[in-house]
Amino acid sequence: MESMHKFFNKQCELIKISNYSVRPKPIFLNAVVNVSILECLKTNTINKKVLCTKMYRKSNEDTIQDILNRLEFIDVKEFKLLGRYPKISKQIEVNILRKLFKIKNNIGSLVKDKGSPIYYRMAGGRYFKVITNYSTTEAASEKVIYFDKKIANTIGAILSSNLYFWYYQIFSDNLNMKKYEIESFKIPIDKLDNDKIKYIEKLYSKYLEDIEKNVIIHEKTNYKNITSFKEYKIRMSKNIIDEIDDFIYPLYGLTKKEIDFIKNYEIKYRIDDKED
């Protein structure tokens, strides 16, 4: 969307973007996709304000008018990333993003050509993402990035946190996890001493053990050269994910109120949904 952003930024003083998820029910009957609706005030001048909403979800009980009546917009201009504005509606989210953006290092600065691997599934995982230090599938949708051995598991744990999931949700297309969305995430590397790294590694090991305990293995025959695949029920490990967030939130300078918001973000869908 970078080219479109540049065009509107040069022509429209005000941009408003409202966002709607395809799940659990599409906002429009025959548009089975995530939807964003743009309203622009064309002034042929440089943009001054970008108002955005969170990703609204339509249930079976909602009408379109119900959703429109609930829309909350907030200015997100200061948080533009490459081709992306964050899908947020709350002042508390603005406060959290300001703290994240002040952190100097991002994960991309720690990526190596070779080293200890962290695997992630580019596709799948509606309300949780599968981030491991071992391969979980034969599918091409699994990607790998490498880090120094000392920090790899810490990054794996942070990418498994509620904090990262929120960041992914607000900056992604809500379908696929792209490398940019990992590399752009901030990491307070200067606050991670050896004791903190050892502790978060223990949490990550506990988390990985738990997700494997709850995994369902499906056998396949002649399907794209895949003989079986693992279906992860990550929501069943939410209590351990919360432990990770309880440990990392002071490192990010977040308040208890802010991390409670993050831990409960999309909680209705993350816990009750039957598909991860």
Score class of each variant (00 low, 15 high):
E243C: 07
Y180A: 14
S21G: 01
Y127T: 03
F101T: 02
L82F: 08
I189E: 09
V130S: 07
E181H: 10
E258P: 07
E209F: 08
R70F: 05
R23Q: 07
P26N: 03
K238L: 10
V130Y: 00
Y223S: 09
R121T: 05
I217Y: 02
T227S: 14
S172T: 12
M1H: 15
E266K: 01
I17E: 01
G156Y: 04
F247I: 13
N47P: 00
N106H: 10
S18H: 05
L38G: 07
N222M: 15
T43S: 05
T132R: 15
K150V: 12
T227K: 15
N47C: 09
R235K: 15
I189P: 01
F7N: 12
I200H: 10
F171H: 13
L254I: 11
K104A: 09
L14R: 08
N133V: 04
I151L: 02
I107D: 06
K178D: 03
N30G: 03
I15V: 08
R23L: 11
S161R: 11
L159I: 14
K256N: 12
I88D: 06
L29A: 08
T132L: 05
K263G: 02
K90T: 08
C12G: 05
K213R: 09
E201V: 12
Q11C: 01
E201N: 14
N60I: 02
D113H: 15
K230R: 15
I15H: 04
Y180M: 15
H218V: 08
E219H: 12
E201L: 01
I131Q: 10
E219P: 00
E61F: 00
N214L: 08
I151N: 02
H5Y: 12
P26Q: 03
Y249E: 05
K90R: 13
N19L: 00
S109N: 09
L82V: 13
D173C: 09
I271C: 01
S18R: 04
I131M: 07
M177N: 00
K220V: 13
L41K: 09
I155N: 10
I262V: 14
K206N: 12
D62M: 02
I96F: 02
A140M: 04
E243V: 10
K274D: 13
E72N: 07
D66K: 02
S237T: 11
Y269V: 00
C52T: 14
K224D: 14
L254R: 07
T154G: 05
S21E: 00
I234C: 09
C40S: 07
Y199R: 15
S172G: 06
I226P: 14
V33K: 12
I92M: 07
I262L: 07
K77H: 10
K54P: 06
I17A: 01
K58W: 01
T63A: 00
L163P: 01
Y119I: 08
P188F: 02
F7A: 09
Y85N: 15
F171K: 13
F73A: 03
S135M: 12
Y167R: 14
S160K: 13
M4T: 15
T136G: 07
C52Y: 02
T53H: 06
C12R: 02
D193M: 14
S89A: 03
E209G: 08
N214F: 15
I187M: 09
M236I: 08
N174C: 09
M122H: 05
S3W: 10
Y249G: 01
L51F: 05
N174E: 05
S161L: 13
I240M: 12
E258I: 11
N264V: 03
K143C: 12
G156N: 09
G124Q: 00
K114N: 15
K16I: 06
N239C: 03
N225F: 13
K54A: 06
